[in-house]
């Protein structure tokens, strides 16, 4: 065990107090845990998303703007360095036999995430419900993970930002030099809500995004993945991504 200055000083105090007080009596009360409402992630879940591109149209970006509002993601206006947690991509068939397909691309929350494997500080990690998250307190901004991610899902905060006008108070803002990405709205999941993009997609009457738990065989997403044809982006990399697509 290592001790910092504060605990050594505290120990001195405790020894001095031990002389004066009866055994079992402590000068400083041990902290008691107080009850309160708890938002907790559930171990054993495996969150995943299924996106039906036939219901996604190129003129709709409800998911993108909902994400920016929910997570206070600013726009610098510098396309090289803007932060994107979710972005709309257009797929064009080179032989031009098929119509272009519009789809959102976000963090795939892989089961074998290369970003986590390369992180030198263990800032990127897999939470016990399968989410790939960044502990921003540990991130040193080295950007290995940005290079490792085949989905371009991660962004570095290049500039100091001012909080947007209507800031969501439940989500921290950001400091320059830290990498960030989609969290599947972990703070909302823990309260039993859906990610903001999924909710916005349903509200925009598209219903192209389905979110759920793959470890629950009765969930709608498990059922649909079982019965209907779907695929992931770059399955050949063997990362087991968990944003599934239909119609690409």
């Amino acid at each position: 065990m290592t001790m910092d200055r504060r605990s050594v000083l505290g120990l001195g105090g405790a020894i001095a107090a031990g002389v004066a007080l009866a055994p079992g009596l402590r000068l400083i009360a041990a902290p008691e845990t107080s009850p309160g409402s708890v938002a907790a992630s559930t171990p054993g879940k495996r969150w995943a998303m299924l996106i039906d591109t036939s219901r996604c149209s190129s003129d709709c970006s409800a998911c993108v703007s909902a994400c920016r509002t929910e997570n206070n993601v600013p726009l610098f206006g510098d396309p090289e360095r803007d932060i994107h947690w979710i972005r709309k991509v257009e797929l064009r068939d080179q032989s031009q036999r098929k119509a272009p397909v519009s789809l959102p691309v976000l963090c795939n929350h892989c089961e074998q995430p290369p970003c986590v494997h390369v992180c030198p500080t263990e800032a990127s990690f897999i939470r016990h419900d399968g989410l790939v998250l960044i502990d921003k307190h540990r991130c040193i901004g080295c950007r290995y993970c940005i290079i490792a991610c085949p989905y371009k899902a991660r962004s570095l905060v290049f500039y100091k930002t001012k909080p947007p006008k209507d800031t969501n108070p439940n989500v921290p803002i950001r400091a320059a030099g830290v990498v960030e990405k989609c969290t599947f709205c972990a703070h909302r999941l823990d309260e039993g809500k859906l990610p903001a993009c999924v909710e916005a997609c349903a509200k925009a009457d598209k219903g192209a995004m389905l979110f759920g738990d793959l470890n629950d065989p009765k969930s709608e997403i498990s059922q649909r993945l079982l019965k209907e044809k779907s695929q992931t982006i770059r399955p050949d990399l063997g990362l087991k991504p968990h944003v599934h697509y239909q119609g690409i």
Partner: peptide, 11 residues
């Protein structure tokens, strides 16, 4: 809160 996903709101 961040790594284990247990957030006590009042704290």
């Amino acid at each position: 809160t961040v790594r284990e996903g247990v957030a006590v709101k009042s704290e």
